[in-house]
Every structure is written in structure tokens, then in C-alpha cells.
């Protein structure tokens, strides 16, 4: 159990998918315009990640090594389709806001990287925790970035105005360039604060 908790913690903090592993950038940049969008994307990705990690881990003895990547992709794409249909049915507003990026969860490198790097080598319980940890780490970054961009860009939190009228809204932050700036500054701060020595291996 202890090992599972370590896996969970590493996913959220020391191996944070966005800030340390630097995967899944497209979704991070595109959907962190507000807290709601960030949370919607984060939890959708987490659902796919947990589902695909567990299934792939259970099937890892049956999948031949040579065709494993196509098999993983089919499993992942099935989960994405399930999530997409659920969102269309019950949360159409979020589905419209995220639009193209829901089907694009398939090619989010986080999921394939965890499938290849973790789920195909570990049992399903550890894989479940790995999926949860990475999913939460991803969601946390999206929500915090969404909060910063929403607060400074449009002066609201969760759609409620909280900044005074006179507050100069930095419209740039909710437009495309703001995504790059926010993420760049976040990474720099995280690099400074992360206790575990960060290996400097950028590809």
C-alpha cells in the first residue's frame, strides 16, 4: 500500500506530467483559459488515463510485444470515445467549450507514456494509482493555471466577478500568448521550489 501512495504522490508532485515530464502540452495550453475548462479537461483526461492504465495492465500478458503500441492506442481511443459520449450527453456546455480537444485526448502523450512506461510493467492496482496520481497532477496544473488566467484576464473566479471595476484586465492572458507565458512562468517557479533534484534532461 505504501508503494502505491508513493506512486500517487510522485504523479502529483515530483513526476508531475506537465511541469516535470513536459507531456500533454497542447491540452494544457489550450484549455486552461478558465477553472471550469481546466477542470473539465483534467478530469476527462484522468478518467481516460485511469481506465486505460487498468485495462492495459490487465492485458499486458496477452498483448504481443511487437504490436503493443497499436493495441494501446485502440484501448485509449475506446475510452476517449466513451468519455466523449458521456460529456455530450450530460455536460454539453463543457463538451462545446473543449471541442476539438476531447477527441485529441487520444494523442495526449501523457496517456501513451504512462501506458508504455508504467502500466505495461506493473500490476493493475499500482497502475490505477499511477493513473490517479498523474491525472490529479495534470488536473491540478490545469486548474491553477485556469484560475490565474481567469482572475487576471477577465477578473472572475468560476464566472463570478471578484475584482473591482477599476482592475485593469490583462486580456492578453486569456488569449493564445497568455497560455505560453503562464506555463513558462509556472515551470520556472516549480523548478525553483521542487525539492527532489530535477534531472535536466529536456529533449
Amino acid at each position: 500500500m505504501n508503494k502505491n501512495l508513493t506512486v500517487l504522490r510522485d504523479g502529483i508532485l515530483f513526476d508531475n506530467p506537465v511541469l516535470i515530464q513536459v507531456v500533454g502540452m497542447c491540452a494544457t495550453l489550450a484549455t486552461s483559459t478558465s477553472i471550469i475548462n481546466g477542470a473539465g479537461m483534467g478530469f476527462s483526461t484522468m478518467a481516460v488515463l485511469v481506465g486505460s492504465n487498468v485495462v492495459i495492465s490487465l492485458l499486458r500478458k496477452f498483448i504481443p510485444d511487437t504490436v503493443r503500441i497499436p493495441c494501446f492506442i485502440v484501448v485509449i481511443a475506446s475510452f476517449v470515445t466513451i468519455v466523449q459520449l458521456i460529456l455530450q450527453a450530460y455536460l454539453p456546455a463543457i463538451n462545446d467549450a473543449l471541442g476539438l480537444f476531447i477527441p485529441l485526448i487520444v494523442v495526449n502523450c501523457i496517456i501513451l507514456a504512462r501506458a508504455e512506461g508504467f502500466a505495461s510493467k506493473n500490476n493493475w492496482i499500482a497502475s490505477l494509482f499511477d493513473g490517479l496520481g498523474n491525472g490529479l497532477g495534470f488536473t491540478a496544473v490545469l486548474v491553477i493555471m485556469g484560475a490565474v488566467r481567469e482572475l487576471l484576464g477577465s477578473g472572475t473566479i468560476l464566472g463570478m466577478t471578484i475584482m473591482p471595476e477599476a482592475f485593469p484586465k490583462t486580456l492578453l492572458l486569456i488569449m493564445a500568448p497568455g497560455a505560453f507565458f503562464t506555463l513558462g512562468i509556472f515551470m520556472a517557479i516549480f523548478k525553483k521550489l521542487a525539492k527532489k533534484p530535477v534531472s535536466e534532461d529536456e529533449e
Binding site: 513536459v22 505560453f180 507565458f181 506555463l183 513558462g184 512562468i185 535536466e200
Partner: peptide, 20 residues
């Protein structure tokens, strides 16, 4: 702390402004 990816992202942000 800006070495590597962070500075690359800031650079990309500035390019993105120009593409606006």
C-alpha cells in the same frame, strides 16, 4: 530557473503575440 523549457515557452509566447 528559466533555463530550458520555461524560456522556450516565454519565447513562444512572444512569437504568438506577433502572430496575433
Amino acid at each position: 530557473s528559466f533555463e530550458g523549457f520555461p524560456i522556450a515557452l516565454i519565447g513562444a509566447g512572444i512569437m504568438s503575440v506577433s502572430f496575433l
